[in-house]
Amino acid sequence: MKRIYTVLLFLAATLSSHGMDLPRKEGFSWWEIDTLKAAFLVPDGWHKKSTVRQDTLGYYITKEEILGGRGTFTTGLSLNVYKDFQAKRGTDPVRFIHDFQLGFSKHAKILKEWTRRIGPFDSYGFLSEGVVGGVSTKVHHLFIVNSKTGTLYYFFFEAPTSEFEEAWVWGEPMIKMLYIDDTI
Rank of each mutant, 00 (worst) to 15 (best):
K48L: 08
D122F: 07
K138W: 02
P160G: 02
F96V: 06
A39F: 10
E163Y: 02
M20P: 10
A12M: 13
F40Q: 03
Y179K: 05
T6C: 11
H141M: 05
I4L: 15
G68T: 06
S147V: 05
D84R: 04
M20Y: 13
F100W: 12
F164S: 01
V52N: 00
W30K: 05
G133M: 08
T161R: 01
R117G: 06
P93N: 10
Y82M: 02
K49A: 09
A159F: 07
V131E: 12
Y60V: 02
I4W: 04
S50Y: 00
H107T: 14
E26I: 01
L41P: 11
F40H: 09
N146G: 07
F156K: 02
L11M: 12
K112W: 14
A108Q: 08
G71H: 10
S105D: 09
H140F: 12
G68I: 05
S17M: 12
G133N: 13
E172C: 05
E26M: 05
W170Y: 15
P120E: 11
S136V: 00
A108G: 10
F96M: 11
G58R: 00
L57C: 01
G19T: 09
E26V: 03
S16W: 04
L77I: 11
F126G: 01
V139Q: 02
G76E: 04
Y154V: 07
K63A: 11
E113H: 14
F100I: 03
V135S: 01
S128A: 14
M174Q: 13
V52D: 01
V145D: 05
V81Q: 01
E163T: 01
E64H: 07
T56L: 01
T14L: 14
L15D: 10
E165I: 01
G76P: 07
E129L: 06
G119F: 08
T115A: 12
S50N: 04
M177L: 15
S29C: 05
T115G: 10
I118S: 14
G119H: 07
E65C: 03
R3Q: 13
D92F: 12
G150K: 07
F156P: 00
T35F: 06
P120I: 05
R89V: 09
Q101L: 15
F155R: 00
F143S: 05
L77C: 09
K37H: 15
P160D: 00
A87H: 11
L41V: 13
A159T: 01
I61M: 03
M1G: 15
L152Y: 10
T115D: 13
G90P: 13
S78K: 01
R70Y: 13
D34F: 00
Y59K: 00
V42L: 09
F156V: 00
L11D: 14
T62P: 08
K112F: 15
G27R: 06
H47M: 02
T51L: 09
T35I: 12
I175F: 06
L41S: 08
A39V: 11
T149F: 03
R95V: 14
L36E: 07
L57P: 00
T137I: 06
S128F: 06
G134N: 06
E163Q: 09
L9H: 15
W31N: 02
K25S: 10
D99P: 11
P173V: 06
G171N: 03
I180G: 04
F155W: 12
T151W: 07
Q86V: 12
L178G: 13
T75L: 03
D92K: 12
L111Q: 12
H140S: 11
L142P: 05
W30E: 07
L127M: 13
P43Q: 03
L79H: 02
E172S: 15
S123F: 13
F156Y: 15
